[in-house]
């Protein structure tokens, strides 16, 4: 099965390793295996595979992860630009 990767070098994901306590929650919730545990710290190993869903940041109890989370959906972006609150994207 081909492993899909979207556009390179665009995602806003940031990990502050100083804050990280190595709980591994980000590894658990990430649907694209972006993180790896290296000793007692998480690290980003597949940055371009990140889809900015925000699961890691939401579930990081020490707020070591920052990402501008959103849904990568062209229709939703159109709707937002047109000021429509009704979102038919999904």
């Amino acid at each position: 099965m081909a492993d899909f990767v979207y556009l390179p070098e665009v995602v806003t994901l940031e990990l502050d390793q100083l804050r990280c306590v190595g709980c591994g929650m980000c590894l658990e919730v990430c649907p694209h295996a972006v993180f790896r545990l290296n000793g007692r710290k998480a690290e980003i190993v597949r940055r371009d595979a990140c889809m900015e869903c925000g699961a890691c940041a939401t579930n990081c109890s020490v707020t070591a992860i920052k990402v501008q989370a959103g849904v990568g959906c062209a229709q939703a972006i159109f709707n937002q630009l047109l000021g429509k609150s009704k979102n038919n994207c999904c």
Partner: peptide, 15 residues
């Protein structure tokens, strides 16, 4: 992109 499982908001905006 909206139905796919791996596109990011930043990427879709860029394209």
């Amino acid at each position: 992109t909206g139905a796919s499982t791996y596109t990011s908001l930043s990427g879709v905006k860029k394209e």
